[in-house]
Design a binder for these strands. Structure first.
Length: 476
RNA sequence: UGAGGCAUAGCGCAGUUUGGUAGCGCGCUUGGUUAGGGACCAAGAGGUCGUGGGUUCAAGUCCCGUUGCCUCAACCA
């Protein structure tokens, strides 16, 4: 027993103070560091690697849908930005503006993009002339800046990385369908790759993206029961097309205004992974996006043949496409176990002289801490199967945890007590803004998403006829 | 922006009440012994105490300002 279990102790008790646990763990596992400018973060290689895996998975899905990657400038002239009234009003408070360059004051201030609808809209008006140019689907991976008042690594930083997809369509129906389709892709990705179950659906008018006709969201439940908006897909109607003159000659010869969509997910997803799966031992990263899927820890490494056996196992796994690391540092095995557990590596292989002699390896799962022996002969199949099982079980575990905490309420008191217990609360809503505001005022819960296809007789706030069922929750 | 807290070695902290030589643990370096769940011994390196001013013979410590960070609230991906 070590006299100081500093590493483990430094991770605050997850149950005692969840936000504190979160900020501790993202730094102690070397995912991020803080930048010199307020609210900025430095994503370190281990954290960035998760992002790269997310990018690869999403790019493959985008490609299948005919979305191509492109890149647009960071700086947007203010004149572009002010063309869509609701949009500029919504974003104005958090836009950073460049006023000086080259030692002089600029004649026109430049906005640092908080999102790129305006510049992409401007370009699309040039690119779209004919119905033959439609649909147009572009995506860009970039950074954006929103001057937030308080920040938390990954979940809310002044600058963050994301992808923003923008599409232009000939008809409202097609654009609306695209909006829904992208939401579906996001849901499939988040559930299958990040093992985070999400509720998807439309947002209320209050929560809608500035300038959109409709905003669809996916909401994930964090370990403390709070909700996190994990991604959004917006149907923009003709709002931006009108503001930026995106018009085309249709097959019937008429000049028509197009319909557009936009959709995005950000590095916030990494925060969602941490807050959904993490525990008192640190991170728990789903195998599909884990920078390191499997770590081999040699036991009694100085004894003959151990390192050699580990290296050949590593080579075998590596050539099969498993992201594997051999920890041949001279730290003690116990130290390594804790270190890699804290970093969330899904599978650990322990290999020592006794195992090698018996032709076996010991595999330990990060998600359940189960240990099992497998023959060394079929190591690749065993490890791959185990990784797939971990991935599946993590989603099921998260889903189970969430299902237990989705409850119904019929009145304000019910909403309040359920929300305070860390639940998602489904309640009838008449559809008026006053009732939505009142819930927020009295319970600090906001309307996260419409519960599609569900019905309630009465609004939980005013008792009038309910038009929708809404999921209320406190949110990050 | 409102309320509270924090800032001392790479990391975590003590020292501040009552001013008087800059400390501890971990980590790091070197050498050795170890090795199936955070090993041990020995010797080392490392700090203008966030920053600006003030009080004082003397400030990490007291006073005023300022900046940054954290939690909560408000705002948002």
């Amino acid at each position: 027993m070590a006299k100081d279990n500093q590493f483990v102790e430094q991770i605050a008790d997850i149950n005692a103070d969840f936000p504190q646990w979160y900020t501790d763990v993202v730094r102690k596992t070397k995912l991020v560091d803080y930048g010199p400018v307020k609210g900025t973060m430095i994503i370190r290689p281990y954290g960035y690697s998760i992002w790269e895996n997310i990018q690869n998975e999403l790019n493959a899905r985008f490609k299948k849908r005919g979305v191509e990657n492109a890149y647009f400038p960071l700086l947007i002239p203010m004149s572009y930005f002010t063309k869509e009234a609701e949009h500029v009003e919504g974003f104005a408070p958090e836009v950073a503006v460049v006023t000086h360059a080259g030692g002089e004051e600029l004649s026109e201030p430049l906005a640092i993009r908080p999102t790129s609808e305006t510049i992409i809209g401007t370009m699309c008006s040039k690119w779209v002339q004919s119905y033959r140019d439609l649909p147009l689907k572009v995506n860009q991976w970039c950074n954006v800046m929103r001057w937030e008042k308080t920040t938390r690594p990954f979940l809310r930083t002044s600058e963050f990385l994301w992808q923003e997809g923008h599409t232009v369509h000939a008809t409202a129906e097609e654009a609306e369908a695209e909006t829904q389709a992208m939401l579906g892709i996001y849901k499939e990705f988040v559930e299958n790759c990040l093992a985070i179950p999400v509720l998807t659906g439309r947002k209320t008018g209050k929560e809608r993206f500035a300038g959109a006709e409709a905003t669809y969201t996916m909401e994930a439940m964090m370990r403390d029961g709070k909700s996190l908006q994990a991604g959004t897909s917006h149907y923009l109607g003709q709002n931006f097309a009108k503001a930026f003159d995106i018009q085309f000659s249709d097959s019937d010869g008429a000049l028509k205004t197009a319909y557009t969509t936009s959709w995005g997910v950000s590095t916030r997803l990494i925060g969602a992974v941490i807050m959904t799966h993490g525990d008192e031992r640190g991170l728990k990263i789903p195998p599909v996006v884990a920078p390191i899927q499997c770590v081999i820890v040699p036991i009694a490494a100085r004894k003959g043949g151990v390192i050699e056996a580990c290296e050949s196992l590593k080579a075998e796994l590596e050539s099969a496409g498993v992201r594997v690391v051999l920890d041949s540092s001279d730290n003690s095995p116990g130290w390594k176990f804790n270190e890699w557990e804290m970093k969330g590596v899904p599978v650990r292989i322990e290999l020592g002289p006794r195992d090698i002699e018996a032709g076996k390896m010991l595999c330990a799962r990060r998600d359940t801490f189960e240990k099992a022996e497998y023959p060394l002969e079929n190591a690749v199949e065993s490890v791959k199967a185990l990784l797939a099982q971990v991935q599946k079980d993590m989603l099921e575990d998260a889903r189970k945890r969430r299902e237990e905490r989705i409850v119904y309420a019929d009145d304000m008191a019910g909403i309040l007590s359920a929300v305070e217990a860390g639940n998602f609360v489904k309640a009838g809503w008449c559809g008026c803004r006053a009732c939505e505001d009142k819930v927020k005022e009295e319970t600090a819960a906001t309307a996260r998403v419409f519960a599609e296809g569900e019905h309630k007789e009465k609004c939980a706030v005013c008792g009038k006829e309910a038009k929708h069922v809404i999921v209320f929750a406190r949110a990050y």
